[in-house]
Computed example of a mutant assay.
Amino acid sequence: MDHLQELLESDNKGEIIYARLANSLMNGLLLPNERLKIRDLAEKMGTSVTPVRDAVLRLVQDGALIMPSPRDIRVRSLTLTEYLEIRSIRLELEGMIAAKAALLATPDDIRQLEDMLAHNETALGNADAQTGLELNQSFHFELCRIAQMPILTSILHQLWIKIGPLIAQSYSKGGRHMIDYHYLVVRSIKEKDPQAAKIAIQTDLLSGGSVMLQLKIDETSP
Rank of each mutant, 00 (worst) to 15 (best):
L65A: 01
E82C: 01
A127W: 05
D180Y: 03
L184D: 15
E6V: 12
I73T: 08
A99R: 05
E142D: 01
S138E: 15
N12Y: 09
S138H: 15
L59D: 07
L25Q: 09
L80W: 08
T81W: 02
E94H: 05
L25G: 11
A22Y: 05
V75Q: 01
L29W: 12
S24R: 15
S138R: 15
V56G: 01
L184T: 15
V185S: 10
L59R: 07
I201A: 02
R145K: 07
A197C: 04
A147W: 09
I89W: 11
S138Y: 13
L184M: 10
K173R: 14
D2P: 08
I66A: 07
Y18C: 04
S69K: 10
S210V: 00
I146V: 07
T47D: 08
I167R: 15
A197T: 06
E94R: 10
T81G: 08
E219L: 10
V60Y: 10
T203Q: 15
A42R: 04
S170L: 00
R176Y: 09
A102M: 01
T79D: 02
Q5L: 15
Q112V: 04
K198L: 12
G125I: 00
L80M: 14
D54M: 07
I163P: 06
Q148G: 00
L31F: 11
H140R: 05
R76E: 01
S138W: 14
L117P: 04
V52H: 06
I38E: 10
L4P: 00
A101W: 04
D193W: 01
L117Y: 03
L143G: 06
M96K: 11
I199Q: 13
L166R: 06
L143N: 03
I189F: 02
K37Q: 13
H140L: 10
M67H: 02
K44Y: 09
L36N: 07
A19T: 14
E92C: 08
L30Q: 11
S188Q: 03
Y171Q: 07
R39K: 15
D54P: 04
I89S: 13
E142I: 05
M116K: 07
V56M: 01
S210L: 02
T203C: 10
I73M: 05
S170C: 14
Q148N: 06
T131S: 10
D2N: 12
E142L: 13
I110P: 08
G132P: 03
T131Q: 14
T131K: 13
E134W: 00
I38H: 06
C144D: 12
V60I: 12
I151K: 12
D193K: 01
L84Y: 06
M1V: 10
L59W: 05
P32Q: 01
D109F: 04
L31R: 12
E94A: 06
I16Y: 04
Y181T: 07
H119V: 00
E94C: 06
Y83S: 09
I179N: 08
P107Q: 03
V60R: 10
C144E: 11
V186P: 09
L143H: 04
P68N: 07
R20C: 02
M212W: 02
I17A: 05
Q214M: 13
A129P: 03
D2Q: 11
I146L: 01
